[in-house]
Design a protein around this nucleic acid. Structure first.
Lengths: 242, 242
DNA sequence: GAGTGGTCTAGACCACCCG
DNA sequence: GGGTGGTCTAGACCACTCG
């Protein structure tokens, strides 16, 4: 038998799409609860089990956070649980040590063709370039250079960043309504150049991890590019394979 | 209300446990189908939906492979789909290039205290040390040093490895009935020492990615430790964050 | 056509959280 | 106690694969 309907799409996927749209449109804000499963089932005219399966997938992608007995909440970078969700560097001995960020500068420049291509913007578009250092136990271990398309972050300044006392993604979420949902990283080993050696307080030529990250929001739209130079003596980048 | 049953465990989790046991005991072999959902439902005296949820989790962990219309199969490293499941190095330009392994040596030695600790064996136990090179488009890019607890890989020799023409994990699965299910990696940047520089055909001091991997089988039992030195000019280690 | 996994429903009940 | 998510069931039907 040939498939009866070659463009078949399960109901729960369509519901997931509707939920995604509401999330993207800001109908429910980060940290807030979304309507209950029974309520959504009525709204969309499907059974509760179907809504449930749609939410299951959103929860698996960390877009939403289920709490038994309380409800389902829009995921946010502004809570302890997901504070360092995207940070993979940890101490070999005491993996608990948490970093502190210091913002060095914010510049507004035109995107290079390379950066523009990755961020899917025009080379003539301007971007903010943020530089910062992350220290673990007062030792500088990460130097980040972060490109943010200016059009989405109007009014970003060094002062505002310096006043913020939580994570960058929490800042961007609260101030510019941009939520980082997933990211791709490309990792290489490089030798420390003069600038990075100075900031990380090591000799020129010290091997560093170069982590290039492209972060995306809804619909896989890229909204941040960053290059991070990691000092990996006594620390390492963690990953799990399945 | 206090919880009625403080050690509550869902039925489907218990079913999952039973399925895991059957997998571990080899009741169903890699590549073979497990019984159908309805059959398992009868066997365990639960509904098909409950079996389904258990299998859902096994599938999410890549222990099992669902194929609509055909059945559910025990995952294997010996098929194209999961051939390079654990390999994260890819070319920046043409990510499709696949590697070829050359085995250099197999030695049987006593585990150092450090290696023993990671593999959860006694320092007096012996381990095989396998060395190999992986080439992408004839260029050597990875040098691996692999420790395997001898007790689980009796009869491993260089010749047998050299005759095998697929992946190492496929070899270990087929010949020693050891299946790698998940692994943890710790990644650092280091300078190439003389041995690694020679093998990878670069200058001493070239920055390399050092990837330390601990692989586990059922019940999270460690069954392989490896250190890989990766050459990352024009290639990079890929990762996705959620 | 028979068998398998995949979807959808309706309803019951449980565990958990909060006021 | 009332609401939320989590579990479990039974049954119907759909999409896919294979002989």
């Amino acid at each position: 038998m040939q498939p009866v309907n070659p463009t078949f799409s399960p109901l729960y996927q369509q519901i997931k799409g509707l939920l995604l749209k509401s999330l993207q449109d800001g109908e429910w804000k980060p940290g807030e609860p979304i309507p209950s499963e029974t309520e959504l089932a009525v709204r969309y005219g499907v059974s509760q089990g179907t809504v449930r399966k749609a939410i299951d997938e959103l929860a698996a992608e960390n877009l939403v956070d289920r709490k038994q007995g309380r409800g389902t909440f829009v995921a946010t970078h502004n809570e302890a649980k997901s504070e360092y969700r995207f940070l993979r560097l940890a101490a070999d001995e005491e993996p608990g040590v948490k970093p502190k960020s210091t913002y060095l500068s914010v510049e507004r420049v035109r995107a290079s063709s390379q950066i523009a291509k990755l961020l899917d913007i025009k080379p003539s578009d301007s971007v903010f370039v943020v530089k910062r250092v992350m220290r673990f136990d007062t030792v500088p271990r990460i130097f980040d250079e972060i490109w943010l398309p200016a059009s989405q972050y109007k009014g970003l300044t060094l002062e505002r960043l310096q006043q913020w006392n939580s994570t960058l993604y929490g800042f961007l979420e609260s101030n510019f309504n941009v939520r980082m949902l997933r990211a791709k990283e490309h990792i290489k080993a490089v030798s420390a150049q003069a600038e990075h050696a100075t900031i990380l307080q090591v000799e020129t030529g010290t091997p560093l991890l170069l982590v290039e990250r492209l972060s995306m929001t809804y619909a896989d739209k890229p909204v941040e590019l960053r290059r991070g130079w990691y000092l990996t003596d006594r620390f390492s980048y963690r990953n799990e394979l399945y």
